[in-house]
């Protein structure tokens, strides 16, 4: 790997300035668990790495019943799943962050990095999508927000312009009677990359019988993690029944556009989307029913 300049700014402004490389190849460094591996494999080269972990705003983690969750882009996975408030309010985010790599990887790897890396299999992304997260972006032209399902644009590609960076993720407070779950299928139980990942969230009526709305997101079955909007929408107004779940699974399968690669065949992936969608919805509904009644 070619040597590069390492800088560790402590303010957003400085970081944005350093990221805008004026022709230099510059990348942000969060936990490094993706980018260092890619650099070492000579997938690309950089002239400068901007370590964003020293910027206070990016380390922010605030979770409250009033404002929902603000998750700084440099917060490592373990801080997410060890947070009791997050565990209570956003268990699907705990599902996803505790699946990413090993305990060692979770000490470093961030949700922000997982998202910016934009792997179709990135485990936190379907979870963020079903939870309705928005991305707070800072750049030379100021701040903007983007819905998380619009953030990734292709394998390893995202909407960030040169000099732009992800500052934080904002997750709205989950409504009463809602529940969500993320799960994935891997040949090994841990330390593996999703063959397919599925996240599902549901909002039930007060009687907790009928589904008012649902979101289903799929990982590793398209160039980017995918919001399977039709699959979720067809559940609106339906009884939380097996038949409804089956239909949603079918729609999710139809939404998937998988390829065959060393981790699985397109056929296997389509099949797994159906299986995992049912399982994800089942757990999401169970979680919605578990929560305390409003």
């Amino acid at each position: 790997m070619q040597d590069f300049e390492y800088v560790a700014p402590t303010t957003l402004e400085e970081a944005v300035r350093l990221l805008d490389g004026n022709g230099l190849k510059v990348k942000a460094l969060a936990g490094g668990t993706d980018i260092l591996v890619q650099l070492r494999a000579n997938r690309f080269q950089v002239d400068r790495l901007v370590d964003i972990k020293g910027i206070p705003e990016l380390n922010q983690l605030s979770c409250s019943e009033a404002d929902g969750l603000t998750l700084g882009a440099a917060v490592p996975c373990y801080r997410v799943y060890e947070d009791e408030r997050i565990a209570r309010l956003y268990p699907a985010l705990v599902d996803a962050t505790s699946l990413i790599g090993s305990i060692q990887v979770q000490s470093r790897g961030t949700v922000g990095g997982n998202l910016c890396n934009a792997a179709p299999s990135g485990d936190s992304i379907p979870a963020l999508i079903i939870l309705g997260a928005t991305c707070e972006i800072a750049g030379p032209k100021g701040r903007r927000t983007v819905q998380v399902e619009r953030f990734c644009t292709g394998p390893g590609r995202n909407v960030l312009e040169p000099g732009e960076m992800l500052v934080s993720l904002k997750l709205p407070l989950p409504k009463a009677n809602s529940g969500a779950h993320f799960l994935r299928f891997t040949p090994r139980k841990e330390m593996d990359i999703a063959v397919v990942g599925v996240g599902a969230s549901v909002l039930l009526d007060d009687a907790r019988q009928r589904i008012l709305s649902a979101r289903i997101a799929l990982g590793a079955v398209a160039p980017t993690p995918l919001l399977a909007r039709e699959a979720g929408d067809l559940l609106a107004g339906r009884e939380a029944s097996e038949a409804a779940i089956e239909e949603a699974a079918k729609a999710a399968r139809a939404a998937a556009r998988p390829i065959t690669d060393i981790r699985g065949t397109a056929r296997q992936r389509t099949h797994l989307v159906g299986v995992l969608t049912k399982r994800a919805l089942g757990t999401a509904i169970a979680r919605a029913k578990e929560g305390k009644k409003p």
């Binding site: 390492y6 460094l29 936990g31 490094g32 668990t33 260092l36 591996v37 790495l49 373990y78 790599g101 090993s102 305990i103 060692q104 990887v105 000490s107 470093r108 330390m191």
Partner: peptide
Amino acid sequence: GNCGACTVIMDGRIVDSCLVL
């Protein structure tokens, strides 16, 4: 980052030292 042979404890948490600059 796949084998853990390089594990060290850094500020109280285990990390793969191959994935830390």
